[in-house]
Nucleic acid binder design. Structure first.
Length: 881
DNA sequence: CACCTAGTACTTTTT
DNA sequence: GTACTAGGTG
C-alpha cells in the first residue's frame, strides 16, 4: 500500500536564529495595501483577532469559522504590518499536517518569509528542544522515542519476569493507560504509590516506578515524557528557558481545547516574560480528554490571563444552515459549554439523509450506492441531475477503526477508489518498525527494545531462551551496578562471553554485532536511502521477505516506500539525516497521510477528521453502543465528549450530510438501537430514506426503529437500555414472512434458501403476529461478569458495576418505570438481562446475544457455572418471569 | 528453537 | 474478525 507522507525535513521549526533580516513589508508596498490584503478578506471579529497582537488573546473559534485563516493572517500581519521578524513567531499545532497546511497558506500570502516562522506539534517541538538542550537537565544526548508498541514491549518484559498474564487487569495497554494518566496529572511513581488505595493501584504504581527506571536505562522517552521533559527543561534550566523566551516573542496555539495540563504549563512558561500568547480553540470540539486534554485550559483562560482579550468567531463559512442547526441540536444538550450558536449566510441547504440499515454490510452498501449516484460519470445522466461530485469531496466517518472494514469491502466491490486514514499505520507496520529498529540500534547501545526487535527477524535461532540470558547479562549486577548496555551484551555474547547461549544463537549474535559495526562505519559516508539498502540486505530482511510470497512482496513494497521517504532527508548531513528521520517517523500522525486532492473517497475516524472538511460527508455507525461508544455510556462527562465528537463530525460537512446506523452490529456486541444523537437533531432537518429503499416493500422496521427510538429518547422517561427496540408497538410487522423477505433482500449474493428462520416454538413466542408482548416485567440489569465492551450503562452518570474475575451470581435490580419491551420474532429472542433457566447450568442472566446465520448465540452468566455461550436452538433455555 | 494449529480473549478515539 | 497464546511437532 502506498502511503505518501508530507514529511518535510526543511519545513520543521528552525531552532537556530537566522541572521539575515526580513523587510517589514515588501519593497514599495504601501501600508494600506498590506492592510487591505491581510484584513480585506476578513470579517470584523476576525480582524480584531488578527490585529490584537500584544498580550494574551483567546479566540473562540467555532467550527468552520476561519480559525486557520485567522492564525495565518495574524502571522502575516505581525510580519508585514508590525515588522516582527518571522523567526520570532511560533505556532504550535497538534499534527504535522496542520502545521504544513498553515505554512503553505502563509507562504501564499508572504512568500519565503513563511519558511522562517517556527511551526510544529507540541511533541516535535519538545523533541527538538530536548535534542538540543536536554543535557541541561541530565538527559542523554541520544534518546529513543518509544511509541505504544515499544512501551508495551517494556511492560510485557515486566509481566514475564513476574509471571503475570498480559491480559485482564494486567493488560499492557491498561497499565500504560493508567501510567500515562498519572503522568499527565503530574504525578510521580512515588506519589502514585502514596495515593494507591486498592491492591491494583499499588500494582500499577509499582509498574510505573519500574517503567520509569527502565526507560531511563534504555535512554528512551515515551510521548508523555517528551512533553514532561520539555516542560522540565523550561522550569529547571533557566538559561535555556530564557533563550527560548527571547527567541519566540509571539506564540500561537491551535486547537487549544485539546491541550493537556503539561502542554498548558509548557506554553505558560514560554509566554511568561512577554505574555504574547494567542490561543485558538473551541470548547465544543474538545474530544481528547482521554489523552489528558483538559477542557479547563480553554474555559479558564480568562482567569489565568486576566488581561486577556476574548474574540468569539461565530460566523461559519463552511456549512449550510441545515448542517449547523443539526450540529447545534446535538451539542446544545451538553451542560458544561460556553453558550454560543454558529450562523452562516448559506441559508437552507439539503436535508440530512438518515438511513437505518439491517447490518453494517447493508449500511456500507447504501453509502457506496449513494456515492456512485452522486459521483459517477454515468452515461445517460439526466439533464437535471446534480453535477457529479469528485471523489475527493467525499468522506466517510466512523467512530472506531474497525468499522472501516465493511465500508472498504463495499467500496472494493464497486471499484470506488478510497484512501484510508489511520487503521494500521504505515510506521507501525511490522516490517517498517523492524527497519526503523535497525536504524535506532545504529545510534544507540542502550535501546534494548529495538535490539530485541532485530535479533530474530528474520529467524536466526535466537529465541526466548537466549533473550532471557541476554537480559540477565545486561541487568545491573555487583560488577556493573548500572547494568550493561544491551549492544555490548550482544557483542559479548557473540564472542562467547555470555554463559548458556547455544552455538547457533552465538554465531547469529556475532553476525549481528558484525553487521551493526559495518553499518555504523558506513553512516557518515552514504545517504540515508543507501544506508537503508545496507540494512535491508545485510540484516537479511530483504532475502527473508523475498521468500515469503505475496505477503512478503507487500512488506517489501513498504520497505521500498520507507526508503523513498528517507530520500527527503538527503540534503542534511548523514548523521543528522539519520537522527531526524528516526525522530520524525516516530512522531507522524495519521492525519499527516491525508491527501485532500486525491480523486478518492476518504475513510477516516471522527477523531482524525477534526480540522478537515468535505462537501459531502457520511457518518456511519450511529448506533447506541458504538456511537456513543459503550465505554462512554456510564459517565456523563464521557457522554458529553461523545456528543462533541458527533458535533465535530457533523460540522465537517459543507453541503451534504448523510447519517446511517445498523441495528445489528459486529461480533459480541448484540443489537443496537439508533444513536441518541439522531434523536437530538431537529426532525424537520432529517430525511429518513429507509422507505425509499427499492428493495423494501411497504414499511420497513428500520424507519420505525428510528422513529420509536426518537420517541424514546426525546420523551421524558428515556429509554436507555443498551439493546432491544424501544417505543410503541407497530402492529404491522408480520413475523416470518417479513423476516424472510428482509433476509433475502439484505443478504448479499444468492445464498437462496439457505437461511433458516430460528425456530420459535416454546421460547417466548409472541402472543400473536404482533411483536408487542404487552407490559414488560421489571427490566433487569445484569451485573457481574460482563464483557467490558458489551457493558451497558444508563448514560445518566450512574455506572454499572463491572466486576471481573470469577463470575458472581448476578444481582438483580428492578428498574423504576420500566419501558415496554418489544419482541420481534426472527430477531433475537434473548435480551440482555433476561433471566433464564438451563437444565444443567441452572439459573443465569443473559449478558449478550447475537444472531448467527442459522441460530442465536446467547452468552449467559450462570450462577454456579460461570459464563457460557450457548446456541439457542440446542440449549433449551427457559426464560423466567 | 521455529513453525504450525487450534483455541481464546478481545475492539475507542492517538501525539 | 483478529491477535495472541499454548501446545505439539519437526
Amino acid at each position: 500500500m502506498g502511503v505518501s507522507l508530507p514529511l518535510d525535513p526543511t519545513g520543521e521549526p528552525s531552532l537556530v536564529d537566522r541572521s539575515h533580516p526580513y523587510p517589514a513589508a515588501p519593497a514599495g508596498a504601501a501600508r494600506s495595501d498590506i492592510e487591505e490584503r491581510i484584513l480585506g478578506p476578513l470579517n470584523d471579529a476576525q480582524r480584531r483577532a488578527v490585529t490584537t497582537t500584544a498580550g494574551p488573546l483567546l479566540v473562540l473559534a467555532g467550527a468552520g469559522s476561519g480559525k486557520t485563516r485567522v492564525i495565518t493572517h495574524r502571522i502575516a500581519w505581525l510580519i508585514q504590518h508590525e515588522g516582527v521578524a518571522p523567526w520570532k513567531i511560533l505556532a504550535v499545532t497538534f499534527t504535522n499536517k496542520a502545521a504544513a497546511e498553515m505554512r503553505d497558506r502563509l507562504h501564499e500570502m508572504i512568500g519565503e518569509a513563511a519558511r522562517d516562522v517556527a511551526m510544529g506539534t507540541f511533541h516535535s517541538l519538545c523533541a527538538r528542544m530536548l535534542r538540543r538542550d536536554g543535557e541541561a537537565i541530565g538527559l542523554p544526548k541520544e534518546f529513543a522515542i518509544y511509541d505504544a508498541d515499544d512501551q508495551a514491549r517494556v511492560i510485557k518484559g515486566f509481566l514475564k519476569e513476574d509471571d503475570l498474564p498480559a491480559t485482564g487487569e494486567t493488560k499492557p495497554s491498561l497499565i500504560l493507560g493508567a501510567i500515562s494518566r498519572a503522568k499527565n496529572d503530574g504525578l510521580s511513581a512515588d506519589q502514585m504509590e502514596d495515593r494507591a488505595v486498592t491492591h491494583h493501584e499499588r500494582l500499577i504504581a509499582r509498574f510505573a516506578r519500574r517503567y520509569a527506571a527502565e526507560l531511563k536505562r534504555l535512554d528512551a522517552l515515551d510521548f508523555d515524557d517528551l512533553l514532561l521533559e520539555g516542560l522540565r527543561l523550561l522550569q529547571e534550566a533557566p538559561a535555556v528557558a530564557d533563550r527560548y523566551r527571547a527567541k519566540w516573542e509571539y506564540l500561537h496555539v491551535d486547537e487549544y481545547q485539546d491541550t493537556n495540563r503539561i502542554q498548558y504549563s509548557w506554553v505558560r512558561e514560554l509566554a511568561a516574560t512577554h505574555g504574547n500568547l494567542c490561543v485558538v480553540g473551541d470548547d465544543d470540539q474538545s474530544i481528547y480528554s482521554w489523552r489528558g486534554a483538559d477542557i479547563r485550559n480553554i474555559l479558564d483562560f480568562e482567569r489565568d490571563w486576566p488581561t486577556a482579550e476574548v474574540v468569539p468567531l461565530e460566523q461559519n463559512y463552511r456549512s449550510t444552515q441545515t448542517i449547523l442547526d443539526a450540529a447545534h441540536g446535538v451539542v446544545s444538550n451538553n451542560q458544561g459549554r460556553k453558550k454560543k450558536k454558529l450562523w452562516t449566510e448559506l441559508e437552507g441547504g439539503d436535508q440530512i439523509t438518515v438511513y437505518g440499515a439491517f447490518d453494517p454490510e447493508d449500511e456500507a452498501a447504501w453509502i457506496v450506492r449513494r456515492i456512485e449516484e452522486a459521483s459517477a460519470a454515468v452515461t445517460g445522466r439526466r439533464a437535471d441531475a446534480p453535477a457529479p461530485v469528485s471523489l475527493s469531496e467525499i468522506a466517510i466517518l466512523y467512530r472506531t477503526n474497525a468499522q472501516s472494514r465493511a465500508i472498504e469491502e463495499a467500496l472494493l466491490r464497486s471499484s470506488v477508489p478510497y484512501q484510508l486514514i489511520g487503521g494500521t499505520r504505515f510506521y507501525q507496520r511490522r516490517e517498517v518498525k523492524d527497519a526503523l529498529a535497525w536504524l535506532r540500534v545504529l545510534r544507540s547501545d542502550t535501546d534494548r527494545i529495538s535490539y530485541e526487535r532485530i535479533l530474530n527477524v528474520p529467524p536466526r535461532g535466537i529465541g526466548d531462551k537466549t533473550i532471557e540470558l541476554l537480559r540477565a547479562a545486561a541487568a545491573p549486577s555487583v560488577s556493573a551496578p548500572e547494568g550493561t548496555p544491551y549492544g555490548q551484551v550482544i557483542a559479548a555474547a557473540g564472542r562467547g562471553e555470555v554463559a548458556g547461549v547455544n552455538t547457533r544463537a552465538r554465531n547469529s549474535l556475532a553476525g549481528i554485532a558484525d553487521v551493526i559495526n559495518r553499518l555504523r562505519d558506513r553512516i557518515a559516508a552514504v545517504t540515508l536511502p543507501e544506508l537503508l539498502d545496507g540494512v535491508y540486505s545485510e540484516s537479511g530482511l530483504r532475502a527473508h521477505l523475498a521468500s515469503e510470497g505475496v505477503e512478503g512482496e507487500e512488506r517489501w513494497a513498504n520497505l521500498l516506500e520507507l526508503r523513498g521517504i528517507s530520500g527527503r532527508f538527503v540534503d542534511l548531513a548523514p548523521l543528522d539525516a539519520l537522527d531526524r528521520f528516526v525522530e520524525e517517523t516516530a512522531l507522524v500522525a495519521d492525519q499527516d497521510a491525508f491527501d485532500g486532492d486525491a480523486e478518492r473517497v476518504t475513510l477516516i475516524t471522527l477523531h482524525a477528521a477534526k480540522g478537515l472538511e468535505w462537501p459531502t460527508v457520511f457518518i456511519s455507525g450511529l448506533t447506541e453502543g458504538l456511537f456513543p461508544h459503550s465505554r462512554s455510556l456510564m459517565d456523563q462527562e464521557q457522554m458529553e465528549e461523545e456528543r462533541r465528537l458527533c458535533y465535530v463530525g457533523i460540522t465537517r460537512a459543507k453541503r451534504r450530510l448523510s447519517l446511517s446506523y445498523a441495528l445489528r452490529r459486529g461480533w459480541g456486541e448484540g443489537d443496537g438501537a439508533p444513536s441518541r444523537f439522531l434523536a437530538e437533531i431537529p426532525e424537520e432537518l432529517l430525511d429518513v430514506v429507509n422507505d425509499d429503499d427499492p428493495r423494501a416493500e411497504g414499511e420497513t422496521r428500520f424507519g420505525r426503529g428510528f422513529r420509536s427510538a426518537r420517541a424514546g429518547f426525546a420523551g421524558g422517561e428515556s429509554w436507555r437500555e443498551g439493546s432491544g427496540t424501544p417505543g410503541a408497538p407497530s402492529g404491522s410487522f408480520r413475523p416470518g414472512r417479513d423476516l424472510e423477505a428482509r433476509r433475502r433482500a439484505y443478504s448479499a449474493g444468492a445464498r437462496s434458501g439457505s437461511l433458516q428462520v430460528p425456530d420459535t416454538d416454546g421460547i417466548d413466542e409472541a402472543p400473536d403476529d404482533d411483536e408487542y408482548i404487552g407490559e414488560a416485567p421489571e427490566l433487569l440489569q445484569p451485573v457481574g461478569r460482563i464483557p467490558p465492551w458489551a457493558a451497558t450503562g444508563r448514560g445518566d452518570g450512574t455506572a454499572l458495576p463491572s466486576a471481573t474475575g470469577t463470575p458472581v451470581l448476578p444481582q438483580l435490580r428492578p428498574r423504576v418505570a420500566a419501558p415496554v419491551r418489544v419482541r420481534i420474532p426472527g430477531e433475537r429472542y434473548f435480551r440482555d438481562g433476561d433471566r433464564v433457566l438451563h437444565a444443567t447450568f441452572g439459573e443465569g442472566i443473559v449478558v449478550t446475544s447475537k444472531l448467527t446465520r442459522h441460530d442465536e448465540e446467547v452468552t449467559i452468566a450462570f450462577a454456579g457455572s460461570g459464563v457460557k455461550t450457548l446456541a439457542a436452538s440446542i440449549a433449551n433455555l427457559e426464560v423466567q418471569g
